[in-house]
């Protein structure tokens, strides 16, 4: 059992939990992920690591309630326990030789983009960030991003904060002003990463995208996380989760991610009803 040491809502739908997992904390690097199970009957859900503290022995992940399992996780209070927590899995973000980087995050993906930005900042790279949200009320980690970046562009789809439009608008502006990015790193919804990659391709900037496909074990065993990268099949759990954004077959990946859509919809409704009944 793994204790949730702190629990901090970042916006009405997004929560950060800090979990006591000393072995994972010793090794965790930005870009890697963990898999957790809320209870004995729980499914194994992967989350990218958003922060870790080897001294305290804790690892933080940020989640948005999107289905039954995250709904369940949302009901575990601070001081409560989750059944399983394993990691760190996958390969860390590659940082070597990168002096100037632009990080493009979308929605809850920004939770994962942040530790990557922080890492580059600590390594002394020039860090530019474009972070996008639907609307002002759900912006997360603004201060943290500000502290970790040399330049921060916030985008909202509805223009209620920062610049109006999606992240590619802000990215294009930066690409026009800066022709010396060593790399663009994009983390967020697949459709966003697809368009970010299309744009950076136009500008000829190397791009890395962080994939979060369906998976079970996270160690290379199930093959559920297959991603086509440059015509080759890769396992996101062991070969990734970060891949060359210009080579990923996003359409295939998006389709594969919808495999259990109907099941998840129903399970989520059932879980919500269950929790509503408990409240009554």
């Amino acid at each position: 059992m793994y204790k949730i040491v702190t629990r901090r809502p970042l916006n009405p739908a997004v929560t950060m939990i800090e979990v006591e997992a000393p072995y994972v904390a010793r090794k965790a690097q930005p870009g890697q992920f963990i898999i957790l199970r809320v209870d004995e009957n729980g499914e194994r859900i992967p989350f990218t690591i958003s922060d870790s503290d080897p001294v305290k022995g804790t690892v933080s992940v940020i989640f948005q309630v999107v289905g039954a399992s995250t709904e369940k996780l949302n009901h575990v209070p601070e001081g409560g326990y989750i059944h399983d927590f394993v990691g760190p899995l996958g390969r860390p973000t590659e940082t070597e030789g990168i002096k100037k980087v632009c990080i493009v995050g979308g929605g809850v993906g920004n939770a994962i983009a942040y530790p990557v930005a922080k890492k580059f900042h600590e390594l002394g790279a020039e860090v530019h960030c474009v972070i996008g949200f639907k609307t002002k009320d759900i912006i997360i980690l603004e201060e943290e991003f500000a502290a970790a970046s040399d330049r921060l562009v916030i985008m909202t789809d509805d223009g209620s904060y920062g610049l109006h439009g999606n992240v590619t608008v802000g990215l294009e502006q930066l690409l026009q002003e800066n022709d010396d990015y060593d790399e663009v790193i994009t983390i967020g919804p697949m459709i966003m990463m697809k368009f970010v990659s299309l744009m950076t391709k136009k500008y000829g900037v190397k791009t890395v995208a962080s994939m979060a496909p369906i998976m079970i074990d996270g160690t290379g065993m199930c093959g559920g996380c297959r991603v086509s990268v440059g015509g080759e099949t890769k396992f996101a759990c062991v070969d990734g989760p970060e891949f060359d954004g210009h080579l990923i077959d996003y359409d295939e990946a998006m389709d594969r991610s919808r495999t259990y859509f109907d099941f998840e919809r129903k399970a989520y409704d059932d879980a919500c009803n269950l929790f509503k009944m408990e409240v009554k």
Partner: peptide, 8 residues
């Protein structure tokens, strides 16, 4: 359990 040797 939950110990991936080579990772954890």
């Amino acid at each position: 359990t939950n110990m991936v040797i080579g990772k954890t």
